[in-house]
């Protein structure tokens, strides 16, 4: 298995250790699984509290007890590869997280959307997905009165819906229009993506998948049936594919002037 092809690289099946795990250090999912399989010592080292995970549990896909506080999960989107009219990432997100288009674009939740950008001077057109940018300094978390909007230690920005009172101040503060308010009663949500009327939500970077050592649904589908434009990984790990790509290509973040340091990077924009 080689890492030259983006598709193969990010689609390593969750939890399974790649045979040449050492030789392809960029394989994110595999690397994380490796750490876990490394046993209880790694688990203990990463968590300050006494571990609940039994010693010798060691199954590669054992549920994790704690996130990796040293990680900074991020996305790299290659705009040149993002196909015109392709919305695989959007459909995958809808399927994974249980939101849908009900024909009311103004009130429907949209965790991820395809934006068409046209340079009015040159006429150049590009398409790209925009979702929660998982800022390092998230304005939504700054303004949230109850602390419901927060950034996990590994950089994923979430809404703790147990604390969200539905004031929508985060939606006022978000520079990316990444958040949606749930305007109606919902039923039959996905077990791993709780969502409910009167609270605010946004892309979770598929936190439930990341916690199992998998990659976000949008990235997975983009790489299997889409243009292979999305990459997920740990920006803090210099050995990861994403960190290397970010280091070697000129990538940009959206509205870098705001200084919020998004975890989502775009190339060829």
């Amino acid at each position: 298995m080689s890492c030259t092809d983006n598709k193969t690289c990010t689609c390593t099946p969750a939890g399974s250790l790649p045979a040449d795990g050492e030789a392809s250090p960029g394989i994110e999912a595999g690397r994380r699984a490796f750490i876990k399989a490394g046993g209880a010592f790694a688990t203990i080292a990463l968590t300050p509290t006494v571990t609940l995970m039994a010693f010798g549990g060691g199954k590669a896909n054992a549920a994790q007890e704690s996130l990796d506080p040293k990680a900074r999960w991020g996305l790299l989107i290659d705009v040149a590869k993002c196909g015109t009219g392709c919305s695989e990432c959007v459909s995958a997100c809808q399927k994974e997280n249980g939101w849908q288009d009900t024909g009311h674009p103004e009130t429907d939740a949209q965790w991820i959307r395809k934006v068409t950008v046209k340079n009015p001077k040159s006429g150049a057109v590009a398409e790209l997905p925009v979702m929660c940018q998982h800022c390092d300094e998230p304005p939504c978390a700054d303004v949230c009165p109850t602390g419901a909007s927060f950034k996990r230690a590994d950089g994923i920005v979430l809404v703790d819906k147990h604390l969200c009172i539905g004031c929508r101040y985060c939606m006022m503060a978000c520079p990316y229009k990444a958040r949606s308010f749930i305007h109606e009663t919902l039923i039959d949500q996905k077990p791993y993506a709780p969502r409910g009327k009167g609270t605010v939500e946004s892309c979770t970077m598929c936190v439930h998948r990341v916690d199992r050592g998998e990659i976000p649904a949008c990235v997975e589908s983009c790489n299997s049936t889409g243009g292979g434009a999305m990459m997920f990984g740990n920006l803090n790990d210099p050995q990861s594919d994403i960190a290397k790509r970010v280091a070697e290509l000129t990538s940009t973040q959206l509205r870098p002037d705001l200084g919020v340091d998004p975890g989502v990077h775009y190339t060829y924009l």
Binding site: E106, K114, V115, T116, P120, V130, K177
Partner: peptide, 9 residues
């Protein structure tokens, strides 16, 4: 830039 999307961008 001129932008458009399903989300009113």
């Amino acid at each position: 830039m001129e932008v458009s999307s399903s989300f009113g961008d």
